[in-house]
Simulated assay, not measured.
Amino acid sequence: MAEEKDVNGVLLYYKYANVPDLNALHNFYNSNCQSLRLLGRVRLAPHGVNVTVGGKLSCLEEHIAAVKLINLFDGTDFKLASCQDFQSNDNIVKECGFNSLSIRLVKELVTFSSCPLVKSPLLSNAGKHLSAAEFNTILQSAGSVENDVPTNRSRVLLLDARNVYETRIGKFQTPNVETLDPKIRQYSDLSTWIDCHSERLQGTKVLMYCTGGIRCEMASAYIRSKGAGFENVYQLFGGIQRYMEQFPDGGFFKGKNFVFDHRKQLLLNFADFPQIVEEHRD
């Protein structure tokens, strides 16, 4: 057991909530991560936190325990993955940000739009969360579940909220359910894609997904903000990672989940995918 705790791991989590004291939270992360020798990226905004850090599994578990003591993080979904070999690949370490600790105060956890005229939508209007099991049931029946979730009365569409270097290596593929791949190079391009394809989304049941869930929060709220015909937007809670934990054989997800697969191992050798590395730097 001690040896298992000594292996490397990666922790991802986010929380949308009003942060009463950003400086105090910044000090907490700086002190906690340094004392536990965690490396990675921490982004703090007035409306929440987005964290991706790596280190020893035992240290990551200590970090989770400390974060849970802060009321702000009630209900947070902590995604902890063991990956014994992630430090053995310098390219992976660099691209994932695990060669240093970066804690920054930002205006937005994820930059929703590069256009200054586009206002970020209200997160209270985000699409309804679906568990991995609910999401899978919808796909199995090509659009039919009970209790105020998509039915056969409207066509079901899958919308991938990730970037092209992610969708290129894996995505949901389901018979009778179309998967819309915006093929964007950066998340801030998604709002423009939604504006240009709103006619395809209107009047349908939109099931959104991304790697861990954070990108769907803002994007689903933006779609719903368009009004009549855009109310039925749903998002996969916990993203592809939680889905693949629930369905280890991959379920309806075909290919690879950038950066981790369902065995909690880093699956990409970036040297084998130079075009992905180049796009990821953008």
Rank of each mutant, 00 (worst) to 15 (best):
E3Y: 01
K5V: 00
N8A: 10
L11G: 06
K15D: 09
V19H: 03
P20K: 01
A24W: 10
S31F: 09
S31D: 15
N32E: 15
S35E: 15
S35C: 09
R37I: 03
R37V: 06
G40D: 05
V49E: 08
V51R: 01
V51G: 02
T52D: 05
G54L: 11
G55R: 01
L60W: 02
E61I: 07
E61P: 01
E62K: 06
H63N: 15
I64V: 15
I64A: 12
A65N: 15
A66T: 12
K68C: 11
I70K: 07
I70N: 06
N71W: 05
N71D: 15
F73S: 07
G75D: 07
G75N: 11
G75F: 08
T76H: 09
K79L: 13
L80T: 11
D85S: 14
F86W: 13
Q87I: 12
S88F: 10
N89P: 00
N89W: 09
N91L: 12
I92L: 13
I92T: 05
F98H: 09
S100Y: 14
L101H: 04
L101S: 04
S102L: 13
I103L: 11
L105H: 07
L105M: 13
V106H: 06
K107S: 11
K107F: 00
L109H: 04
V110K: 00
F112K: 02
S113T: 14
C115Q: 14
P116Y: 06
L117P: 00
S120Y: 01
P121Y: 03
L122G: 11
L123N: 08
H129Y: 14
L130Y: 02
S131H: 03
A133I: 13
F135E: 01
I138F: 03
L139T: 03
L139V: 08
Q140W: 08
Q140S: 12
S141H: 13
A142L: 05
G143N: 06
S144G: 06
S144T: 10
S144I: 10
E146C: 07
N147S: 15
N147L: 14
T151F: 08
T151V: 08
L159D: 03
A161S: 14
R162T: 07
T167F: 02
I169S: 08
G170V: 11
Q173D: 15
Q173G: 07
E178I: 06
T179F: 04
K183M: 14
Q186Y: 13
Y187W: 10
S188M: 11
S191R: 03
T192V: 10
W193K: 04
D195Y: 07
E199I: 02
K205A: 15
K205W: 14
C210G: 09
T211C: 07
T211P: 05
T211H: 03
G212N: 04
G213Q: 05
I214A: 01
I223R: 01
I223N: 00
S225F: 10
S225Q: 14
S225H: 11
G227Q: 11
Y234K: 02
Q235I: 04
F237N: 03
G238P: 01
G239R: 00
G239W: 01
Q241K: 05
R242N: 12
D249C: 06
D249H: 04
K256A: 11
N257P: 05
F260G: 00
F260I: 07
D261P: 00
H262R: 13
K264F: 08
K264M: 11
L267Y: 05
L268W: 04
N269I: 00
D272V: 05
P274D: 11
E278V: 02
R281D: 08
